[in-house]
Nucleic acid binder design. Sequence first.
DNA 1: CGCGGCTTTGATGTTCATCAAGTAAAGTGG
DNA 2: CCACTTTACTTGATGAACATCAAAGCCGCG
Lengths: 228, 228
Amino acid sequence: MNVLCNCEKCELKGIFIGHLTETDIESFCSQKSERQFSKGEIIIEQGMEITEFTYLKSGLVKLFRKGEGGKEQIIAIAKPFDFVSLLSVFSEKNYNYSVTAIEDSTTCILDLLFIRNIIGSNGNLALNIMEKMSRVSDNIIGNLLNIRQKQLRGRIAFILIYFADKIYSNLIFDLPLSRKEIAEYIGMTTENVIRILSEFRQDKIIKINGKTIEIADFERLKAIANFG
Amino acid sequence: MNVLCNCEKCELKGIFIGHLTETDIESFCSQKSERQFSKGEIIIEQGMEITEFTYLKSGLVKLFRKGEGGKEQIIAIAKPFDFVSLLSVFSEKNYNYSVTAIEDSTTCILDLLFIRNIIGSNGNLALNIMEKMSRVSDNIIGNLLNIRQKQLRGRIAFILIYFADKIYSNLIFDLPLSRKEIAEYIGMTTENVIRILSEFRQDKIIKINGKTIEIADFERLKAIANFG
DNA sequence: CGCGGCTTTGATGTTCATCAAGTAAAGTGG
DNA sequence: CCACTTTACTTGATGAACATCAAAGCCGCG
């Protein structure tokens, strides 16, 4: 058999392997490269030409765009095994969003033409990628619609649960986003993010220590997220 | 050569042909079926199992979902040559949205397994579909984000321009949506949709006659859409 | 003809953004 | 390492934007 790169749990590899020939796998592995990003560093910049397929191996990133009014809007938070450059890779020539690391991150990079070639010569593999693509988009759209129909308290509750549940699997966690970024994510002002966090703290629903959040009353928070 | 079904301008066919063998094309054509829907009729119902690939041949439809609070939210308006069931087809087992005709419509229906088989055995075709998928999702996400950052006047202006420009290519058109549906599309209340339409009428930006809208001052409307 | 849904307008109050001002924290250059 | 600047955070006060409630006219449809 083969070493198949050194990334043992890479979902991307999991998707590709089984569809590829030995030689394809070898070129796949030799072709890929990894890059490290510290928290805050730019991984992809809006407007950049799309020449590579970027995959998040570890860490946490935010996808965001400069809206028409110049204000930034966060489109999604991506965690490992999310395909970072899945959104427009196959339709656009240039990125219409930026990606920055909000925690130290490692990305795995493959030449886009190479990927296109592999997909182009392997329909079943394509189906898997499409499935993933479809799911990622569905989630983003669903989130945007869910958030939209909530009032501010509900949105904050939603995002706190999102981090506790989906990202950190822990009731205590460090917010990877500034208050301002949270505002950009759920469509409200920084001041109100702070205000409502303070409110939750006073109501003993959460404890706050700078960026560290502890969810003290998960049930109540969930009720607010669902109802508000 | 071949008759290639009777749909001469079908984009779907355009995508498929060139990638398919003669025999594939024949089965493609013989396999497909068409359905007619009158305005208001349900084409796809949320929760339904996805067994078919639905393509809009003529007419106009709305994609919408029942939000968490029970309120309906319109996700997108699809016009011919948009793939109606592109959103979740390759990731979900059941539709998480509904589709109804907002104008008399004709859909073209292909068995999903059949499509999957064709795609699975033809990577280049898959790339084309992915491109389309990617573009559709990008548009929906972009629209949601654009709308979100506007105030109500801007949203109404946006949707009026959208219909005039993207759907009807005419400054005079019949609104295919009720006031309530417009509200569901751009995230506001029915009353405010009406109020702002009236306001635009009083300001002589538009003329209203029931569902018929005439854009009288396109430039001003555009300014409101961009700024507000 | 009457019922229900769609449309319209007005009045009211809530929610939220904006403005202002101050504190804390974090990065920067000497 | 400290003064300095900048950026993030916080709270309060104010007004604007918006949802909600209420009432009435309209239209299509059984």
